[in-house]
Simulated scan of single mutants.
Amino acid sequence: LAVDEQVEGFGYVMGLRPQRFKNIVDLMKRRIEPTFRSLATAGFHLAHNYLLLHTQGFCYRDISFGNAFFDPDTGDVLICDCDNVAPDGKGVLGVLGTPRFMAPEVVLGTAVPSTQTDLFSLAVLIFYMLTVSHPLEGQNETEIKCLDLPAMNKLYGSHPVFIYDPADDSNRPVPGIHDNALAFWRIYPQFLRDTFTRAFTEGIRNATNGRVRESEWRGQMIRLRDSIIYCSHCGLENFYDADKLKATNGNPGLCWSCAVQLILPPRIRIGNQVVMLNHDTQLYPHHTDDDRLYDFNSPAAAVSRHPTDANVWGLKNLSDGKWVVTTADGEVRDVEPQRSVTLGVKTRIQFGKAEGEIRI
Results as ranks from 00 to 15, higher is better:
A151T: 09
S257W: 05
H287F: 05
G253W: 06
R193G: 09
R193E: 12
C234I: 13
P189M: 12
P285W: 08
P265W: 01
T248F: 00
A207P: 10
L264Q: 07
P265Y: 05
D165H: 08
A242T: 02
D148R: 05
Y240G: 01
I163D: 00
R211S: 07
N209P: 00
Y240R: 09
F200A: 14
Y156I: 07
P266E: 09
A259L: 06
T208I: 10
P160T: 11
D226R: 08
P166N: 01
N251Q: 02
P285A: 01
F184M: 15
L254F: 13
Q220L: 14
A259K: 04
S232Q: 11
L224G: 13
R225S: 13
P166T: 04
N171M: 13
Y164E: 02
R218V: 10
N153W: 04
R267K: 14
C231P: 04
G253M: 11
T288F: 00
I222K: 09
G210F: 08
F162N: 04
E214Y: 13
F162W: 05
R225E: 09
L155I: 14
L224D: 12
H287A: 11
I270M: 09
Y188T: 12
H178P: 04
P160I: 09
D168K: 04
G176H: 06
G210E: 14
G253S: 05
T197Y: 07
R186P: 00
H287R: 05
A199G: 14
I263H: 14
A199K: 06
S257K: 15
P265I: 08
G157M: 11
N153P: 03
Q190A: 09
F191M: 09
N153K: 09
F239R: 08
S158G: 01
D226Y: 09
I263C: 01
D226K: 08
S227H: 04
A181I: 01
L293W: 04
P150N: 01
G210Q: 11
D194C: 11
F184Y: 08
N272K: 01
